[in-house]
Simulated assay, not measured.
Amino acid sequence: MTALRPRRAVPGRHLRWQPGRRCPAVALDLGSARTRAWAAGRGLILDVPTVTFPGAGAVYPVQRGAIVDVGGTARMLDRLLGHRLPRFTRPLVVLTAPVLDGYAYRNAARTAVEVLRPRGVVTVPAARAVALAAGEDLSAPLLVLDLGAHLTEAVLLVDGAVFDARRTALGTADVDDATPAVRIGEAVAHMTASMLRQDRTSVTADALSRGPLLAGGGALRPDITRHLAYAALRTVPAPHTAAVRGAARLLEAPGAARLRKAPRSHPRPTDTGPPGDRTD
């Protein structure tokens, strides 16, 4: 388990806790290429490369949807967020997670986030967060295509829950002369065709008819999106920050308001929280 160390004192940034004060709340999106954080009442406060510096060179603690260096991730979070959170409070943290291999990711992320001394940690599938950011009607089947820097996911949501998912270890950072952009389009087409072929219901077809929802940094790349052959393809506004913005919407849920009321003492972090997939 990652050792916790006292936060650095930064004059003018740490506020003394008072009874009745609301605990801070933070949404996190730990991507392979970039880490983004959204603070309740403040908006986007971080959009930086996902790197840590334990020694001479930069180390990348998150690689293709997996946290490969938990300690490095914790050090990075402490460096980026430790001085931004008021002392004597425990933040509520909402964390996005990839759909596949999500259990291992959530366990690793939970250990890393402990460096922030959270009052509660709630995880939400990144695809669902994207849908929330777009304000989509989750009562109808929805296909989310998330084109990241090192990972591309195709996730089918039914009633807001993951019904089916595919992914490929290929993203925008891989596009070069050896790996042309068309390969990402071909990979997405293969994933959605596999979903359609294996689905014994009509939900995949219904989602395709509705139009896939496109997010991730790849949605800003015309050289990639022109290879996505979907008649009703829709792009989320500011697609590169959609996941963290959707996670932030969970901070507005009724359960989040209850957790964010600061206690008179400081109990150990729990896994209770607003609607989402908890780190159980």
Rank of each mutant, 00 (worst) to 15 (best):
R268N: 05
E114W: 07
T73I: 05
A161N: 00
T73Y: 04
A37T: 14
R183H: 04
T192V: 15
E252I: 04
A229F: 01
A229E: 05
A108K: 09
L116I: 02
F88V: 00
T235L: 08
M1W: 13
A247K: 03
M76V: 03
A104P: 11
M1P: 13
V93T: 05
G171N: 13
L233K: 10
T279F: 06
R200M: 11
D101L: 05
R210W: 09
T225R: 05
V94P: 04
L233C: 07
P254W: 00
P49N: 02
A104C: 02
A238N: 14
H266M: 01
L145P: 08
R34Q: 14
G82K: 03
G43T: 12
H83A: 13
D29N: 14
A169T: 12
A253D: 03
A58H: 00
P11W: 03
Q63T: 11
G71E: 14
R264D: 11
A97L: 15
A205L: 14
L143Q: 06
R268W: 08
A104R: 06
A154I: 13
G20V: 01
G57W: 11
G82H: 07
T241S: 12
G217Q: 07
A129P: 13
L132T: 03
P180Q: 10
H266W: 02
T73H: 07
L46Q: 04
R36G: 01
V122W: 03
R75G: 09
G135F: 07
E136H: 10
A253T: 02
L196K: 07
A37Q: 09
L85H: 03
Y105G: 04
A231H: 14
A242Y: 10
T52S: 08
G246W: 03
R278A: 14
L251W: 07
A215G: 12
D146W: 10
G20I: 01
T201H: 09
Y60R: 10
A39E: 11
L147F: 08
A133C: 09
P212I: 15
T89W: 00
S32F: 07
G43P: 08
